[in-house]
């Protein structure tokens, strides 16, 4: 699979030096995360290692407080591990500074959140244009329109998030996540704020787009049905990976 690298990315960008190591999109090696609360150290993740192949869909499940969201944050380069490393799209995250991580996310990563995380001051169209504009893409508006059409919001381009329902907001978020054609899409409880029917529609859309673009999908969920639709499920318990088996 080829990785979409924005035309305006600098020639020296670390992301261009994508390894040929084959088919691994995300690899976690001995990943640990400890936080200190006063004198007390709290181990949130402990020695987690796994690999996710390109195009694969993987669900991370576990009870509340098992470390799912922390793991997602580490995999996406939103946070730094206390120990271990993550390789994302062929790039070791420990070798990148904050701006390097931002560049990697801009070019290779898409996100969908439980709380949608749309910018309320912007219209649906502007929200979807945002990642492309940050990449300096001139075709931002055309591309964003296309993706909003694709998620069924072609008539709601100029609506602000406040004027949209929860399901519609999540569709905008999905369009925003896919608009840069990311190599990996991370989703944190993407249906968590939605009713069952809307949640199902959103999940359908997510998997349809994922299948169409061969994007690797990594999602954190409590929803067993959603997890079952993924090719594989990683199960966390008390910060440890207890199962890397497949549900597909």
């Amino acid at each position: 699979m080829s990785v979409a690298v924005a035309p305006s990315m600098p020639a020296t960008s670390p992301i261009e030096a994508e390894s040929d190591a084959g088919a691994i999109a995300v690899a976690a090696t001995d990943l640990s995360r400890t936080v200190h609360l006063g004198d007390h150290a709290l181990q949130i993740l402990d020695g987690v290692s796994f690999e996710i192949r390109r195009g694969e869909s993987v669900a991370i499940v576990g009870a509340s407080g098992s470390g799912k969201s922390t793991l997602l944050g580490l995999l996406a380069g939103l946070d730094r591990p206390t120990r271990g490393d993550v390789e994302l799209a062929g790039q070791k995250l420990s070798t990148l500074d904050e701006d390097g991580l931002a560049a990697l996310r801009a070019a290779q990563v898409g996100f969908v959140f439980q709380a949608f995380q749309l910018l309320t001051g912007m219209t649906a169209l502007e929200n979807v244009m945002l990642p492309l504009e940050l990449l300096g893409r001139r075709d931002a508006e055309a591309e964003a329109r296309k993706w909003l059409q694709r998620v069924g919001l072609g008539e709601r381009l100029d609506h602000s998030p406040r004027q949209l329902s929860g399901g519609e907001q999540q569709r905008v978020a999905i369009a925003r996540a896919f608009v840069t054609r990311p190599a990996v899409l991370f989703a944190d409880e993407p249906t968590g704020n939605l009713d069952t029917a809307t949640g199902k529609q959103i999940a359908d859309l997510l998997f349809e787009l994922n299948a169409g673009g061969a994007t690797t999908l990594v999602l954190v969920t409590h929803d067993a049905t959603l997890a079952q639709r993924c090719q594989r499920t990683l199960t966390l318990a008390a910060g440890r990976l207890v199962d890397t088996g497949s549900s597909a």
């Binding site: 939103l78 931002a102 990697l104 996100f111 910018l119 940050l134």
Partner: peptide, 9 residues
């Protein structure tokens, strides 16, 4: 969110 979708500092 801006940082998350790739904006640098």
């Amino acid at each position: 969110v801006l940082r998350c979708v790739g904006a640098r500092q």
